[in-house]
Design a protein around this nucleic acid. Structure first.
Length: 475
RNA sequence: GCAGCAGUAGCUCAGUAGGUUAGAGCACUAGUUUGUGGAACUAGGGGUCGGUGGUUCGAAUCCACCCUGCUGUACCA
């Protein structure tokens, strides 16, 4: 920010925004190309919606304030409030509602795009980031949900991860609804508090979450967070029904009856009639996962995905390896993607539209951040061969060489600056150029250029017409 | 938002019982090499010590307020 005293513009970035370097961008490109391949293979359409939407269209939930900028970036365009999209699902719902009659049903589309959130950034979390999103619209078929899990698994594997590197956790909001009925929590506010607390089991552990469910908890800085105010009996019941610690039932490790969750327990607690529909949903989903050959899926009832619009199954992808920040400290990385069923989101736009849907998204930048941590993860950065400039009057000769090299597919350039040879060498070294070409007086006389390998320092005399082939040998 | 910690050169940081011209390493510029990079050596540029006000003969150092950043926490539809 410039002030009256300091008229120079600031070179600092706004909070939560970053410059991204080539290495990160190339890995991102690699991830994106993998995503596109998988999406075509899975039969999804490619869609793009604009960055801005009417605020109302993507968030009826926004507070009725003078300025709807809580969580989103908004501005007033004439009479209307516009907001930058905060995810790709809400704009999709708007798109589907707008084009409902024309669209094939079910409708499958994927989208890649930047999204913005006006929140406090954290390690690896920014206010602007790239998201990938794939959805099935107008189908309640659970194969769709299982397929989303298979798809995300395939994408991660293409990106170089193995099944051991990540876990897909799933649950359903319905489990918690039954639980709330059972422990007689009816207040929407308390239910929300419980959901938020449970969502933190992953990060804080059960011990701390118990405090949040009860009276409250002090964090490391000494700040106090008020709890949900449940009784000890209620908290114990929640733990008993949700605390699957130690049971660790997974599809890799199925119990004898083939179920990855404790059906009998629910039946006993809620009654068979109440439990059966919930269980059946998981059975069907589970069978699909198995058929798709997914081995690293686990039922975890503390998966909440906070989002208000989820109505049924929810899933989340977590990485199992250590992620470090630039300072080398291990950070709690959290999920790299997730999603679930949102059967009401499209219907919100109009009566008569009954439109179940399910979708999943990946935080691409976060995934890239994690992939960079894998030491064996190398990406080739191409740097140009430099043709050094001795005399501008010989530019036509340099350009001839340049055209030949480029025609042969060799990244190359004539030194673009104005310095002496030393400067040109320093430049080539700094940008990581593999080689330089000298074509000065001596070379022009002999008709042979000097090719210098910058890695070894070796120089060789090469006929101009052989340059391309010689360079290819050393690349 | 709340809480804790921190702000000295482009970067990483040293420097406080308050005291001449504020330091180092890396980076940068020039030279040792006027047709040769990565190493070395020599020289050089670069800072109103986050800002404002106060205490004092004297403030990077002490006090107050503000700004910014980091971490935790809340929120994250």
């Amino acid at each position: 920010m410039s002030t009256e005293k300091n008229l120079k513009p600031s070179k600092e970035l706004p909070l939560g925004f970053v410059d991204r370097q080539e290495k990160e961008l190339l890995i991102r490109d690699f991830v994106i190309s993998n995503i596109k391949e998988v999406m075509i293979n899975y039969g999804f359409q490619y869609l793009e919606t604009p960055s801005f939407e009417y605020t109302d269209s993507i968030g009826k939930f926004l507070p009725d304030k003078e300025r709807p900028d809580e969580g989103v970036f908004s501005f007033k365009d004439g009479k209307n409030w516009l907001s930058l999209r905060y995810d790709l699902t809400a704009p999709l719902a708007r798109y589907v509602a707008k084009n409902y009659l024309e669209l094939p049903k079910p409708f499958k589309r994927y989208q890649l795009g930047t999204v913005w959130r006006n929140e406090k950034p954290g390690p690896g979390r920014y206010r602007e980031f790239l998201q990938f999103d794939a959805d099935y619209i107008a189908t309640g078929n659970l194969i769709a949900d299982a397929e989303l899990c298979a798809m995300i698994s395939e994408i991660l594997k293409k990106c170089g991860l193995t099944e051991k590197d990540f876990t897909i956790k799933f649950s359903s909001r319905k489990v918690l609804d039954k639980l709330f009925e059972y422990i007689k929590v009816n207040s929407a506010e308390t239910r929300l508090k419980i959901l938020r607390s449970l969502d933190k089991v992953d990060r804080l552990g059960w011990k701390e979450v118990e405090k949040l469910l009860g009276k409250g908890r002090k964090d490391l800085s000494g700040d106090f967070t008020k709890g949900a105010g449940l009784t000890e009996i209620q908290i114990n019941e929640i733990k008993e029904q949700l605390n699957y610690e130690g049971k660790k039932i997974t599809t890799t490790n199925p119990p004898p009856d083939g179920k990855t969750y404790d059906f009998d327990q629910w039946s006993k607690k809620w009654g068979e009639k109440e439990a059966e529909p919930v269980s059946n949903e998981f059975i069907e989903f589970e069978e699909c996962l198995t058929s798709f050959g997914l081995k690293n899926c686990i039922f975890d009832p503390t998966i909440i995905r906070g989002l208000e619009y989820y109505t049924g199954l929810v899933f989340e992808v977590n990485l199992n390896f250590e992620v470090r920040n630039p300072k080398g400290q291990v950070v709690k990385f959290g999920s790299v993607g997730g999603g679930g069923r949102y059967d009401n989101l499209v219907s919100n736009f109009g009566k008569g539209i009954d439109c179940p849907a399910t979708g999943i998204s990946i935080g691409i930048d976060r995934l890239v951040f994690a992939l960079i941590q894998k030491k064996d993860f190398k990406i080739k950065i191409t740097r140009p061969v430099i043709i050094c400039v001795f005399d501008r009057l010989q530019n036509d000769k340099y350009i001839k060489i340049l055209k030949k090299l480029r025609a042969s597919g060799i990244s190359s350039e004539i030194y673009p600056g104005e310095g002496k040879l030393k400067k040109q060498m320093e430049y080539a070294n700094k940008i990581g150029s593999p080689a330089v070409i000298f074509y000065g007086d001596d070379e022009i006389k002999s008709g042979k250029a000097t090719l210098k390998n910058l890695e070894t320092g070796n120089e060789s005399s090469v006929k101009v017409e052989d340059l391309a082939n010689e360079i290819k040998k050393l690349l």
